[in-house]
Computed example of a mutant assay.
Amino acid sequence: MTTPRAVGVRISYADVPPNVTRWVEETLGSAVVSSADQVGGMSPGCAARLVCADGTRAFVKAVGADLNPHTPILFRREIAVLNLIGEHPLWARLRASYDDGDWVALILEDIEGSHPDLADDMVMGQLLEAADELGVILAERTVHGATGRGGGYDAGLTDQHTIFHQFAATLDDLAACPGAPVPEWVRAEAGSWAARTRGLAEHAMTTLVHYDIRIDNLLRRPTGEIVFLDWGAAGVGPDWLDPLLARLERVDQDWFDASLASSAPLARIGDDAVTTWLVGIGTHLAVRTVTAVDVNLPTLQEFRRTESARFLGAAARRLRA
């Protein structure tokens, strides 16, 4: 059975400042009588399922800049995106948000369910169908174009065009990081892989993408429907990106390669583009394991090492095929 690989160290709801918890109770209209802290994901902030005295249930996320200076930015982006796309059963509804310039908090609909077991072919099939539907719905709700630069909104979205160029720059400078866990076959052709990765940035970038589809950001309702959580990485990118991420749980299996043909966007861009993306992100994560400085994120480096090895291993397998 698959379980989340991204598991951080969070504060509990009891550790959240009183001004934030007071806002939660005032917003919900009832005193919180129980909280169940959640552990998935990398944020050092609180993530808790709450039950109020009147029976109201809610999910609350809260973080302060003192815990990690970057995480409040992710929370603000999530608030902006959820306000933009509104309500839909594919994601948890945003009920209210709080921002005092230091602490940022969200009250979300509490979704009944658990992380999906993506080792189950049926459940994986449900995820792929849900990812396809997500792309359609997001396109409908950003019909004027998800440019993030005057195209109808600017929510501080991540920009995949810039990210692809960052991946390429990492490959260009790979010789400067001899300690990064990057295989020799990548180092020997780093310049070529950098050029291919820049080619990905030429793809159309007009789609709102979740960009963080992984098991700890997914719930499966008791009735089987998949729900996408945590929109802090959402941005503007190509239409094939979310379908690709939805398949990454099995990137180290032949199933991954065979599954690409079932996605119209992935079939359109072809195998070379998928392999190039795996090399780009895998190398970038590997270099970050020796260059990044993380505040209150003690498990993030091991996550980077594990994911980098999976992505680069998958790229090597695909090149041998």
Score class of each variant (00 low, 15 high):
residue 124 M to E: 07
residue 124 M to D: 09
residue 125 G to I: 03
residue 125 G to S: 09
residue 125 G to W: 00
residue 126 Q to N: 09
residue 127 L to R: 01
residue 128 L to V: 05
residue 128 L to K: 10
residue 128 L to G: 04
residue 129 E to R: 11
residue 129 E to A: 11
residue 130 A to S: 10
residue 130 A to K: 02
residue 130 A to H: 03
residue 130 A to C: 07
residue 130 A to G: 06
residue 131 A to H: 12
residue 132 D to H: 10
residue 132 D to A: 15
residue 132 D to E: 13
residue 133 E to W: 02
residue 134 L to H: 04
residue 134 L to N: 03
residue 134 L to G: 05
residue 135 G to I: 03
residue 136 V to K: 11
residue 136 V to I: 10
residue 137 I to G: 00
residue 138 L to S: 01
residue 138 L to G: 00
residue 139 A to Q: 02
residue 139 A to E: 02
residue 140 E to R: 07
residue 141 R to Y: 13
residue 141 R to P: 03
residue 141 R to T: 12
residue 142 T to Q: 10
residue 142 T to N: 10
residue 143 V to F: 09
residue 144 H to R: 13
residue 144 H to F: 05
residue 145 G to L: 08
residue 145 G to S: 10
residue 145 G to W: 01
residue 145 G to K: 06
residue 145 G to C: 08
residue 146 A to G: 13
residue 146 A to S: 06
residue 147 T to D: 03
residue 148 G to Y: 06
residue 149 R to S: 00
residue 149 R to L: 11
residue 150 G to P: 02
residue 150 G to V: 08
residue 151 G to R: 13
residue 152 G to H: 10
residue 153 Y to L: 12
residue 153 Y to A: 14
residue 153 Y to G: 14
residue 154 D to S: 13
residue 158 T to S: 07
residue 158 T to K: 13
residue 158 T to I: 04
residue 159 D to Y: 09
residue 160 Q to P: 00
residue 160 Q to Y: 07
residue 161 H to R: 15
residue 161 H to S: 13
residue 162 T to S: 09
residue 162 T to H: 12
residue 163 I to W: 00
residue 163 I to Y: 00
residue 164 F to S: 05
residue 165 H to P: 02
residue 165 H to M: 05
residue 166 Q to I: 05
residue 166 Q to F: 01
residue 167 F to K: 01
residue 167 F to G: 00
residue 168 A to D: 04
residue 168 A to S: 06
residue 168 A to E: 09
residue 169 A to M: 12
residue 170 T to K: 15
residue 170 T to S: 14
residue 170 T to A: 14
residue 170 T to F: 06
residue 170 T to H: 15
residue 170 T to D: 15
residue 170 T to V: 15
residue 171 L to S: 04
residue 172 D to C: 11
residue 172 D to E: 11
residue 173 D to Q: 14
residue 173 D to V: 08
residue 173 D to W: 04
residue 173 D to M: 09
residue 174 L to I: 15
residue 174 L to S: 02
residue 174 L to E: 03
residue 175 A to P: 07
residue 175 A to G: 14
residue 176 A to Y: 10
residue 176 A to W: 06
residue 176 A to D: 13
residue 177 C to W: 14
residue 177 C to G: 09
